[in-house]
């Protein structure tokens, strides 16, 4: 499974969205369940899936899937090979 596929799976699980709704430009304000509790469970899922613990500032500052990818790539988790 590629990292993009892992991220898609995570977003579907955490935010309970249909897989067809996922795209790399998806924004927080487009997902009803990406609220303050969603931020918490998404951070838990990122830790379990990618082994990176989002700081509180990072978790709260994420506004889109692109932001998550930027943070993870900054910590050596690549999405480019895909």
């Amino acid at each position: 499974m590629t990292n993009v596929e892992k991220l898609k799976d995570l977003v579907v699980e955490v935010f309970l969205v249909d897989p067809s709704e996922f795209h790399l430009g998806l924004r927080r304000d487009e997902v009803e369940t990406w609220d303050s509790l969603g931020v918490v469970s998404f951070a838990v899922g990122v830790q379990e899936t990618f082994g990176y613990h989002l700081t509180q500032e990072e978790a709260l500052g994420v506004r889109s899937i692109g932001d998550v990818i930027t943070i993870l790539e900054h910590h050596g988790i690549s999405f480019r090979e895909e």
Partner: peptide, 8 residues
């Protein structure tokens, strides 16, 4: 949604 691990 605030469980200690992700509930799938």
């Amino acid at each position: 949604r605030t469980n200690g691990t992700l509930v799938r």
